[in-house]
Amino acid sequence: AESLAEKIRSGQLQPGAQLPTEAELCAEYDVSRTVVREAVARLRSEGMVVPEQGRGMFVSQTPAPRNFSIPDETLRTLPETIALLELRLSVEVESAGLCAERRTDKDARDIRA
């Protein structure tokens, strides 16, 4: 994922460019299909690539800004880890509540489906 992300950031893979196939990525990086799928899923979740049904994965025309993340190495002690969990708990519970309040009937039907 990092190698592909760097190719995108450096311009080696331009916006709109199609990513190589799974088989090509497996061969290039000497990894399994599972590893390639995880890497592509990570890039997709970061908004760097977008799928086009029946065509493949493409570099996003408008990459999303980097998501908020806290590297594992910053959580060195139990108090730091607990503080992060408390932060997540407060943000995630509030977010879920706001989503529930603001959902439409169509949203609820889609979730049920």
Rank of each mutant, 00 (worst) to 15 (best):
S95V: 02
C99S: 10
L98D: 08
P20V: 03
V50G: 00
L75P: 00
P79H: 06
A27T: 07
L19P: 01
I111Q: 14
R55S: 12
E52L: 14
E80W: 03
A41M: 05
M48L: 15
S95G: 12
A1V: 14
A5E: 13
A108T: 15
S60Q: 01
S45F: 10
E46H: 05
V93S: 08
R76P: 00
T81W: 06
A113K: 09
P51H: 07
E24T: 13
D107G: 04
P71T: 05
V50D: 05
R76Y: 04
E46V: 00
G56I: 06
R103V: 06
E6W: 01
L78W: 11
S45C: 13
Q14A: 14
K7F: 03
R44P: 00
A5L: 13
T21W: 00
V93R: 11
V35K: 09
A83N: 11
F58C: 03
L87I: 08
E92M: 13
V36L: 04
A39D: 15
S95P: 00
E92C: 10
K106T: 11
V50Y: 01
L13V: 02
V49H: 00
V59C: 01
A83Q: 12
P20G: 04
P15W: 02
I8V: 14
I70V: 15
P65F: 04
R42D: 08
I111S: 11
Q18H: 08
C99F: 11
L98W: 10
G56T: 08
E46T: 01
T34M: 07
L25P: 03
A113H: 09
Q53M: 10
M57R: 01
L85A: 15
R112T: 08
E80I: 03
R112G: 02
A27S: 15
